[in-house]
Nucleic acid binder design. Structure first.
Length: 247
RNA sequence: CACCGAUGUAGUUUGGU
């Protein structure tokens, strides 16, 4: 299994899901690591249903899912919700939320919710299921939040078109002196764009400069877009011109 | 006691059917 798991994983990354399945099946019973690797392989190929089906088979095969297994399961569930949302034009009322609740309960019973990575994956899953309250409560329960956890919550708000809540959360983040990265900034600028507040956009622009994010393409283009959406074409143009100048 | 295979979030905009 120590040799086969990387092999399985490599096949998946190359898009060879059949070969990955062959490796998995050849292992007969395998262990929790190979099962998790197979889940990950399905996710890699956007096969959420297959991943969830395999997850459901684990108890019958005497496998107990660990943190990493749940990470995959939550990802798969979120993927399923996204697929439902596309089909249903943005309103998710399908089975993904039920599956998500079951997964959440299961992970709680196994004592895995306190894991930072599991919590992050859980809140993201809920957001994709359009379950904002669940998403928030998972985030609130997260004790040690790192940048990825914050970003996940911001992204959740953006997914749910809750720009104002995102900007409120940003204040909390500042109070806690949490570290942000360029991804955080993109989320916040998208929130500004949604809400349309010029002043906040300027404050964020200041933050972009302080953090030296100006030259990151995703940040600069989002900033220009935020200015434009707030009706501040002069600021947008000024910033754009600054970017074009050499240091 | 050490090592070890699976490892969480998000990321410019716009249009067409």
């Amino acid at each position: 299994a120590l040799v086969c798991t990387p092999l399985l994983s490599m096949y998946a990354k190359c898009g060879c899901i059949i070969e990955a399945e062959d490796v998995f099946c050849s292992l007969f019973h395998g262990d929790v690591v190979t099962w998790t690797a197979m889940l990950s392989a399905y996710i890699e190929r956007y096969q959420a249903e297959n991943a969830l089906r395999l997850f459901g088979l684990m108890p019958r095969h005497g496998m107990s899912p660990n943190q990493l297994t749940f990470l995959c399961a939550f990802q798969a569930c979120g993927m399923l919700a996204d697929a439902e949302a596309v089909i249903k034009n943005g309103v998710t009322t399908g089975i993904s939320l039920h599956i998500g609740h079951a997964l959440h309960t299961d992970s709680t019973l196994r004592g895995l919710v306190s894991d930072k990575h599991v919590g992050t994956a859980t809140l993201s899953m809920y957001a994709k299921c359009s379950a904002m309250e669940e998403s928030e409560s998972v985030f609130d329960a997260l004790v040690q939040r790192d940048t990825v956890a914050w970003n996940a919550m911001f992204s959740a708000y953006m997914e749910l078109r809750q720009g104002e809540r995102a900007l409120l959360l940003y204040r909390e983040m500042q109070q806690q002196h949490a570290t942000m990265d360029d991804g955080t900034m993109v989320c916040l600028l998208q929130a500004c764009r949604e809400v349309g507040i010029s002043e906040t956009t300027r404050q964020l622009h200041f933050g972009v400069v302080c953090a030296k994010f100006e030259q990151i393409p995703s940040v600069s283009s989002t900033l220009i877009d935020a200015y434009g959406e707030c009706g501040d074409m002069v600021d947008a143009r000024t910033y754009f011109d600054e970017l074009c100048e050499p240091d």
